[in-house]
């Protein structure tokens, strides 16, 4: 199963993921983390807009969004660490499959930010 099979599918999934993180941290009362998620969302929207050219439109294999579903219902400290781990894993696995350096770097950095909170 490879449901994240295009550049747009990957970036759109990441954008939605960060939107979900922003809402999650708002609910958890952590405005700083919510703001960081919104910044990552804006950055990823720009990356999607600016880096989609013909050479990026090669098929992407081996990524399924079902593997990256955080449990946003648990706002405890342990729950927060768990959702951050899933996000970090997503970015770490997806970045090498994107064949545009600027986009790859942006995804890696998102992964590092999430990993630091896991």
């Amino acid at each position: 199963m490879s449901s994240l099979n295009t550049f747009g599918a990957v970036l759109s999934f990441a954008i939605q993921l960060e939107a979900d993180f922003a809402a999650y941290y708002h609910q958890a009362g952590n405005a700083a983390r919510a703001s960081d998620a919104e910044k990552r969302k804006s950055k990823l929207e720009r990356v999607r807009r600016e880096n989609v050219v013909e050479i990026t439109l090669e098929p992407i294999e081996g990524l399924d969004e079902a593997d990256y579903v955080p449990n946003f219902n648990d706002t405890s400290a342990a729950g927060q660490a768990a959702v951050e781990r899933i996000a970090a894993q997503f970015y770490q696995e997806v970045a090498p499959k994107i064949n545009v350096k600027q986009a790859e770097r942006a995804l890696e950095r998102c992964g590092q930010e999430h990993a630091a909170l896991a």
Partner: peptide, 10 residues
Amino acid sequence: TIDEARGEAR
């Protein structure tokens, strides 16, 4: 596709 359209817009 939407990606192709984004590529065209770019």
